[in-house]
Write a protein that binds this DNA or RNA. Structure first.
Lengths: 197, 197
DNA sequence: CCTGAAGTACACTGATCTGTGAACCACCAG
DNA sequence: CTGGTGGTTCACAGATCAGTGTACTTCAGG
């Protein structure tokens, strides 16, 4: 439906400016004039390329989603041990958080766009379900028993680390610790691998 | 600083309307005219009572914070068993979620108000630290070993359940399960109480 | 050379936003 | 009776918002 049309260089620059501003300052708080100014392009070009602010918002979230999924996939693929791979998305989150300190763009977007019919809701829900599904696949591949409830638990820990990011506490380390122990506990061998107790 | 001045009946009605609208539709998306209209009062009265929209936002978050803390305190106090009390805030969250289905008002507020100097940041941070501290106190009272890291873990689970609320999954049950097992595991007796394994 | 696509410049609409000014009214305490 | 408090009415300012219309330029491909 929202086909990724071949974007002109100007379109890409506008989208890049929109991503930065939307994430840093909030979607509603950023006007199209500001985006045009920051991108060095014209507001007219913005509308020629995206049609409306709503469609630009949708493109922003879609683009961000794709970048994030790529990072997660790459981090997972870099894991030799399938057991380590289960918690690899947490490692990806650590990398991601270094340059994204304003929380989850999708949770933030839902906060600003309450209308459930908005495309942002579909994109955000798809993203979380994708991660849930990934956790389930990784848990299955690692030989975990009952991968479905484990995946849900990992998702909760992941989102918890993300939500508490604004606080100065190192909740990411905490949540990845819990995640690893949950994974170990669900291995049929009972966690002989590194579980020192 | 932001002293809770004795509010007139009109002030309370305006605040009530603001709470509902801000939470349901987002802070930036709701104008003062709409709040005045919904409360049945005048925009002039709104400004006479609160001075500015920013101060009304602050009052909204403060009021909501107080209501939520009261609920948590009451739920904790209703627990006879000090071990059950540690996870009582999760029970409070279950009650709270029945009438608050749009996520955490403070996370949402931070998404819309990126300025760290805004009072919303202080209120939100205070709230999370209050809960963290409460978890630590309850864990200590229940006789848990190493209550500080346990409290952080419980906070992550709590926020994770809150953040994944928009998804249809029953993540609250999942997170409270993990929370209870973490509490049991940190009891010096090693979890004889109900830990069937 | 011609055409069409991409982008620019710029003025403009109509709506909405926060916030103010000033006159007025109802009521209650002193 | 009088003064003050709380609230209303209504017009208004000034800014900003999303979005449009139109004529212009630039440049690449046939």
């Amino acid at each position: 439906m929202t086909e990724t049309r071949a974007r002109t260089p100007a379109g890409r620059r506008i989208l890049a400016a929109a991503e930065e501003l939307f994430y840093d300052r909030g979607i509603t708080a950023v006007g199209v004039d500001l985006i045009a100014e920051h991108s060095g392009l014209t507001k007219r070009t913005l509308y020629n390329q995206f049609g409306s602010k709503d469609q630009l918002i949708t493109a922003y979230l879609t683009e961000r989603d794709q970048r994030w999924r790529s990072l997660v996939r790459d981090t997972v693929d870099a894991c030799a041990d399938p057991v380590d791979a289960v918690t690899a998305p947490f490692d990806a989150l650590r990398i991601w958080s270094r340059t994204n300190t304003r929380g989850c763009a999708f949770i933030n977007a839902l906060a600003e766009l309450p209308d459930p019919a908005h495309a942002a809701h579909r994109i955000a829900a798809n993203q979380k379900h994708w991660l849930l599904n990934l956790f389930r696949q990784l848990a299955t591949a690692a030989g975990c028993t009952r991968p479905v409830p484990l995946a849900t638990r990992l998702l909760v820990l992941h989102e918890g680390a993300l939500a508490t990011q604004p606080l100065a506490l190192d909740t990411l380390t905490v949540s990845v610790d819990v995640a690893r122990s949950l994974v170990r506990a669900s291995l049929p061998t009972g966690g002989r691998n590194g579980a020192h107790r």
